[in-house]
Design a binder for these strands. Sequence first.
RNA 1: GGGCAAUUAGCUCAGCUGGUUAGAGCGUUCGGUUCACAUCCGAAAGGUCACUGGUUCGAGUCCAGUAUUGCCCACCA
Length: 891
Amino acid sequence: MNNTPQDNNKKPGAWSPSDVEGPLYDRWIKRGYFHGDVKSTKPSYTIVIPPPNVTSILHLGHALNNTIQDVLIRRHRMMGFEAVWIPGADHAGIATQVVVEKQIAKEGLTRREMGREKFIERTWESAKKNKELILGQLRAMGCSCDWERTRFTLDPGMSHAVMTVFKHLYDKGWIYRGNRIVNWCPSCQTSLSDDEVINEIFNGNLWYIRYKVRGADEYLTVATTRPETMLGDTAVAVSPKDPRYKKYVGKTVILPIVERELPVIADDYVDPEFGTGVVKMTPAHDPNDFEVGKRHDLQFINILNHDGTLNANAGKFKGMDRLEARKLLVEELERKGHLDKVEKYQFNAGTCYRCDTVVEPFLSEQWFVKMDQLAGPAIEAVKSGTIRLHPEYWSKTYLHWMENIRDWCISRQLWWGHRIPVWYAEDGTMFISVDRPKAEQCPGYDPAKLVQDEDVLDTWFSSWLWPISTLGWPEKSAELEKFYPTKVLSTASEIIFLWVARMVMAGYEFAGKPPFSDVYIHGTVRDANGIKMSKSLGNGIDPLEIIEKYGTDALRISLAHATPDGQDPWISRNTFENGRNFVNKLYQVSRFVMMRLDGRPPVLTKPSQDDLVIFDRWILSRLQKTVDTVNKSFDQYRLSAVSKAIYNFVWNDYCSWYIELIKPDQPGQTIREGSLNVATYVLGEILKLLHPFTPFVTEQIYLDLTGQTIDGPATLTYGPWPTVDVEFIDDDLEARLAKIQDVVTAVRSLRSELNVPPGKKSDLHVRVSDATFGKLLDDHIEYFRSLARVEKLYCGVDIRKPALSASVVISGAEIFLPLEGLIDLEAEKKRLQKELANLKDQLEKISKKLGNADFLANAPGDVVDKEQAKKEDYLERIEKLNRNLEQIIGW
RNA sequence: GGGCAAUUAGCUCAGCUGGUUAGAGCGUUCGGUUCACAUCCGAAAGGUCACUGGUUCGAGUCCAGUAUUGCCCACCA
C-alpha cells in the first residue's frame, strides 16, 4: 500500500497498518531517535522497564504497561526532554528454573541427573531465546526503547552490582546467616521469602488427638490441621492462665505411636479460648512453635526432606510423602483410639507463588537481610511526598508493609541465578567477596580450595537494583549522573512489595537518592468475565494477534482507553475494535484534508487571528481546552482521561462538527482557505497529541501531509508538544456556536422522528427571541445548510409558524419545518405533549428551589441567577409549546 | 481479625474542589448508496446514581453505618 498524498484523491480504503509499521519503526531506529545522549544538555526523563521474566513471551498486561511507559516517554521526548527508556529482561530465578525443569522432565530428565553446569547451560538457551522474543515483541508494540542500553539481570555488570551490594550489606552487618524457619516449597525445593508465599484458604480437617498423661489415666487433647507434624513434636503447651491445665505443667505426656515423652509447658502464646487450649509443639515445622521452642529450650526435630517426603526422624513413615503419611497416621491413630474427633475446618496455608504447591515451614540455614534500617528512608520518602504513588491510595498499602517489614530471606536452593558470593574454607571459615577471593583476601588459606556457597540469591535481590545497575552502578558512570534518578515507574499492584518497595530502599542505600519520583500503578488485565488473564487458564490474549488483526496503534490506544485509572480493565477481543475504528477515523479525516489541500504545502503553524470565521475560532478554542485537559490529566497520571479527551475532540469536535461545517455544500466547491489552514493546523496538533499513543499512524500521516517520504527528515518524535494558547480560548464564542449546534441537532431530531427521507430538503423557519441569534443563523446558513438539510432559511423575531409544520422549541428559538403531508398529527401531538410534560416537571422543580428563602439567602448569587434564567427559559418554552400544541389541535 | 478499593444505562466505564434536564463507548431500535470514512453518518430508547441515616439552601459528589464484590495484609494450633 502506498500512503503518498497524490494517491489519496482516488484511493478509497482503510488504514492498513501492517505495511507501514515495520518500515517506520526501522526508520526510527536507524535515525537513532530513541537513543538517549548522555552528553545532552536537555533535562533527562528516564524510565526503566519492569524487566519481563524470560519465562515466556509478553501478554496483554505487558502490552498495557509498556504502552503506558511508551506514552510517557514519547510525550516527554516531544516536550524536549532527553527521554530514555531502558529495556531489558529478568532472569527470574525460580520461575525460569521451574519452566526449564518441566521442559527437561518431558525428556525424562531431572536437573540433578543433568548436573548443575549442563542445566544452567540449558536454562541460558531458553532464557536467551525468550529474551529475544520479548524484545521483538516490544519493538512490535512500537516501544521507543533505547536499545543500545538493553540489559539483562544476569549480565556481568548487573551481577557485579549484585555482588557489590551483598558485600556492602554484609560489611554493614545487615546481611546475616541464620538457622530459622523459612517457607519451603517442596516442589521447587527451595526456600522462599515471605512475599513469595501466597496465602490461600483451604477446606480441611481439624484433627483432635489425645496425648496420654504419663503416670495417669488422663489425656490432653490437641487439635491440629497437620497431624503428620506430630512426628516432630517435642512438647505440648498450655496457657499459664488456664486453670484447667495448671496441674499438668511440668508433667509429661506420651506422643502416640512414636511413644516419645513430651514435657507439658506453659506459654502465653497459647490461647485458652481456642480449640482445646492445648497445643502440640513442633518447633522445627511451625514458626510459632519455633519461637516457643527457643524460649523453652525444646528439641528441634526436622521430619522433612527437601522434596516433602518424610525423613528418618519419622520412623516407619520415612520416605513417604507428607500427605500420604498423614492419611496412614490418622488411620493408625483412629485404630489405636488416639483420635478424639475430626472436624471440618477452613484454614489458611501458604502456597508457592510460582508453582502453587503448599509450602512447608522448614528449619534451615539461610541468608537474610535485616530490613528495618533500610526501610527508614523509604518510609520517609512516601510520607513526605518525595515519592508519589498514583493512585495515591496505594501509599497506604506500601507504608503498611514498610512499617511492618520483616527480614528478607535471600538465599535460594536453586541453580539459576546469582550465586551467593561467599566462599568457605575446609574449616568453615567464610570469606565474603565480590569475586572469588584472591590469596591476599584469604590469608592462610589456599584460594583454589575455597568452596563457594551452593545457593543462589533471590531473583528480587537483583531486580531491586535495576534502576541503578542498568545505569552502571557501582561505577560512578556518566549514565548514572545523567539519567538517575529515573522519573516514573509503571507497574501493576502485585509487585509493590516484591519489587517497588525494595527498589526504593536500594536507591537510597546504594545511590543515595530515590530511584524515581512517581509510581504509576495500573490495574491487572482481566477478560470479558472479569477473570484475571493467565496462561494457565488459557484466557489470555496475545498482543501480536491483536497487532496483526487491528494494528499496533489500535492495540495501544484501545488499552489506554479501556483502562480505568487504578482499576482492573476488562478486556476482550472486541475492545480493540474501538481503537481500530478510531485510528481509521483519524486516517480518513487526514485523507480528506490532504485531498482538499490537493498538493499545496500544508500550513502547520498557528493561524493568525485574521481571516477566521466563527467555526475556525471555535475549533481553535476547543483545541486549547483539549490540550489543557490532556496536559493536566497527564500531570495527574490519569491516562484514560487523556485518551478520552483526545478521542472526543478528534471524533466529535473536529470530524463531526468542524470538518462537516467547513465542508462546502456543493461538490466541486473549494473550502475557504482560512478554514482549510485551520483544519490543517488542528490536524497537525492532533497528530502531536496522539503521537505518544498511536505513533505509527500519526507519523505516517505527518509524512504524507508534509509530502515527505520515509527517507526524509520529518518526524513527530521531537514534537514540539502542544501547549495551551489562551489567546484562542473563547467561551462566549463556544456558547454561540453551541446555539447553531442546537438548531442543527433539533432539526435532525425532528426530521428523524417524523421519518422525513434524508434526501428531502426542507425550508427552515426559526422564530428567535433575540435578533442576534437570528443574525448568527443568517450569517452562517451556508455552513450548516447541508447538516440540517435546509432549503431556505427564514428567521427572525416575528417569523410566523407556517401552516402544517412540525415544531420544536429550544432555548431562545422555535423551529418550524413545513412538512405538509409528512406529518402524522397524532404523533406530533404526542411528541409535543411529552416535551411539555418534561418541561413542566423541570419548571416545578426549579420553581420550588427559587421559592425557597433559604436557597435565596444562602446560595451564591451567580447560582441563583443561573437558576432564575433557567426558570425563565422553561417558562418561555412552555408557553411556545402550548401555542404550537393548540395550533395542532386546531387543525 | 485488620486494611484498601469498588458499587452510576443491558455491558465496560466518565462524572476533578457539592449547584448540568447525570454523560461516553459498546450493545439495542429506527433511518441512511451525502464526493474522508458502512472500521461510517443521523436519530432514539434505556438510569428512584447499592441501601439507611446525617451534614447542607442544595448530595451521584461530603460524613457515618449497612450490604455485596474484589484485592492486600495477619503466627490462632
